[in-house]
Design a binder for these strands. Structure first.
Lengths: 154, 154
DNA sequence: TGAATTTGGTTTCAAAATGCAACCCTATTG
DNA sequence: CAATAGGGTTGCATTTTGAAACCAAATTCA
């Protein structure tokens, strides 16, 4: 049967996964963040089948994660560029990369690190923080399931 | 043909997606973070087929994201609990939730928010930060592809 | 105690997604 | 003007998925 869809889920994580939660979509976004823009480049870098790449790019464009831009004089050459919505996945991608590096370090030991362009210093681990910027673990947060509970907490 | 696997990819994001990158796995982790531990509860809350749930739980246990714990007097009753590795996905899940809330707000308008248990205050948006705690966009970071480049930047 | 139910699965089978290769049309390059 | 590159589409075989049926051990209920 069809893969279940989460479009109408009232869970925003489920809805987010509906847009970027399959095997390829987030990797496409990742490579777009590294500068890839052309169909053939995505194809070669990811080793993805062309029909699947077509499908994923179209979905990402539909969901406004990417924009398809005509380049070249007479059209028919395109670039896929991140929208603001797409760039806004940066913390997600970085958090996932850091998790992967921490718990499944690369066999070769060398892990591609991200640095502050201005200073050359490595970036911080991405964490969940309170208003004061202190790191919170899962035990330090509570879920305000409904507005009433949220109200009570204020 | 079979879905492509990324076990041996030298990209840690790809390897991370290999463990939690399909439709259900991250939702299972999410619900585990909200306190779900039992097979039947996952099944009912997610509306997932039992065979798929079985498969995903087993994979998450294999990958040490969850631990399968015998409960009940004579075994044969189990709980699936997050390991440290699993709990460490917290920033990923929260970042994804915030992205979903921002760009695909719930149709009902009510979005489940997370608060600092100690103060009741909402948490901050998850961001990528430099050593000083300043938020960095994708344009503010550079990728030190290899150690040499990293050296040069120091 | 014995029957019914709950838990945690496995099996079967149709529908859908995936991957590969082959093909196609339009631009651009030589 | 021919060859090639870019960006797809189509067909087909292989997997994955989902629903429902089935199952056995443990627990609960009467």
């Amino acid at each position: 049967m069809a893969r279940k869809r989460f479009d109408d889920s009232n869970c925003s994580v489920a809805r987010a996964l509906n847009e970027v939660g399959d095997w390829w979509s987030l990797l496409i976004v990742l490579h777009a963040m590294y500068g890839t823009r052309r169909f053939v480049d995505f194809q070669q870098q990811l080793g993805i089948a062309k029909n699947i790449l077509c499908d994923r790019l179209a979905k990402l464009v539909d969901n406004e994660v990417l924009r398809k831009v005509e380049v070249g004089e007479h059209g028919s050459r395109f670039e896929y560029r991140l929208t603001e919505k797409g760039r806004d996945l940066f913390p997600v991608v970085v958090a996932l990369r850091q998790w992967g590096d921490k718990w499944n370090p690369s066999p070769e030991g060398q892990q591609l690190d991200l640095r502050d362009r201005a200073t050359g210093q490595p970036i911080r681990p991405v964490t969940v923080q309170n208003k004061e910027g202190e790191t919170l673990t899962i035990r330090d947060v509570l879920v305000a399931e409904d507005l009433q509970a949220a109200k009570d907490a204020e």
